[in-house]
Design a binder for these strands. Sequence first.
DNA 1: GCCAACGTTGGC
DNA 2: GCCAACGTTGGC
Length: 152
Amino acid sequence: MQYWLMKSEPDEFGIDDLEQSPDRTAHWDGVRNYQARNMMRDQMRKGDQVFFYHSNTAVPGIVGIAEVVREGYPDHTAFDPEDPHHDPRSDPGNPRWFMVDVRFRRRLDRIIPLRELKADPALADMHLVRRGNRLSVMPVTEAQWRHILTLE
DNA sequence: GCCAACGTTGGC
DNA sequence: GCCAACGTTGGC
């Protein structure tokens, strides 16, 4: 069992959207960063647990928990010229971008704000709180995962 | 292969 | 809206 954190802007796709998706499941499309892609394509496994993080919003922070239900497969939105995430360098014969499917598990009892995560010495090594971090998909250690749940 | 210019992310 | 940090692009 592995743990992850995935960022999304709630204006684009928030925890509410995931909960309201068919079967409470959605594909995590639109990631256009190679490090994040590699994790989705090569490392994320069915059953892995995911912190759902809201970015670019009044109180950025962790809002809920999701689960990986389908492992990496090509992100078809890259093939669609009408899609805002279209990338002409990706084609179905040789896809450049990948995504996973995640299913809503639950909302946290409260938002755990970035501000609080940053101030917590137990989380000093977490990718999220390190300077200049821009990864939208990142690994979380089991110790970090457990600790964050105690903050809930 | 270097690196300046540019675009994006995302907190504040 | 600002801007620091960082990734990508493309000329050379």
